[in-house]
Amino acid sequence: MRIGIDLGGTKTEVIALSDQGESLFRHRVATPRDDYPQTLAAIVGLVEQAEAATGQRGSVGVGIPGTLSSLTRRVKNANSTWLNGQPLDADLQRLLGREVRIANDANCLAVSEAVDGAAAGQQTVFAVIIGTGCGAGVALNGQAHAGGNGNGGEWGHNPLPWMDEDELRYRAEVPCYCGHAGCIETFISGTGFATDYQRLSGIALSGAEIMQRQQQQDPLAELALSRYEIRLAKSLAHVVNILDPDMIVLGGGMSNVERLYQTVPALVKNWVFGGEFTTPIRQAVHGDSSGVRGAAWLWPL
């Protein structure tokens, strides 16, 4: 049995999977924000609940909104800032009495979809989270690729490529929380989509509300969406020119915009070196379950 934990900013979820990928137990609790000891206690409690409910002992994998430094073995780059600087794997291994594997949550998405999701059986998978923020992960042969610095897949904090004049103005107006300007995240996250619509219209709306207006033929909503599609295509073309994955999988709230799967592949060709692009772009099969499932699959068969 494999146990996966998805440690999020607002909720922490556990899943227990059989060797065949069947869900045996699933539960979530509120994340104890800004409290590291209680966060540890919540994870341990969820593992204990899963094992009590199934009567089995499992391997444990944990997805986090950050990564483990290969130098210090402490968490870095987590937007759940109370985790940063903490020896999370060592503490969990001590409390649970077994080895624990930890990976970035976007890498867990990539693993989940590579094992038994939209990209099942593909060798190189690039998985994108386009929600409140923007992240990505890489799975190679069904396993997470973190890299020597733990930054594998940190796509959202690279600059948007091939900026036009308006994007250069946007870059100056909307700095990224990471301290840099022009990050892909500020353009193609759900937050970036809403910010661009507000720049065009002067009206602050959620992504879902903007899409409702687009379906009602609102020209500014249509313009915001078409600009979003171009920016997503440029950002993915950059990845294709470097990694050339076998499949690209989209997760997060913006992945539910069905039109992206028709428009973006054709647009990507405009920026791919040589002008050829046949890589499938698919929506994550497991939706918001991909992260916790991928954490469980950090222990391969």
Rank of each mutant, 00 (worst) to 15 (best):
M1D: 06
M1P: 13
I3P: 03
G4K: 07
K11Q: 13
E22T: 14
S23Y: 00
F25T: 11
V29R: 15
Q49K: 15
A53S: 14
G55A: 07
Q56E: 15
P65T: 08
V75F: 04
L88V: 04
D89Y: 00
D91Q: 14
G97S: 13
G97V: 05
G97L: 04
I102H: 04
A106Q: 00
S112K: 07
D116T: 12
G121T: 09
C134W: 03
C134E: 12
G135T: 00
G147D: 06
G150Y: 03
G153F: 02
G156M: 00
P161Q: 13
D166P: 00
E167H: 08
R171G: 01
P175D: 13
A181K: 14
T186W: 01
T195S: 09
Q198N: 06
I210Y: 10
L225P: 01
Y228M: 09
L232I: 13
S235R: 04
A237K: 03
V240I: 09
M254I: 12
V257T: 14
V257W: 03
Q262S: 14
V264R: 11
A266H: 08
N270P: 01
N270V: 02
V272K: 08
E276L: 13
F277N: 14
R282M: 15
R282H: 10
H286Q: 08
S290L: 01
W299I: 02
W299N: 15
P300K: 14
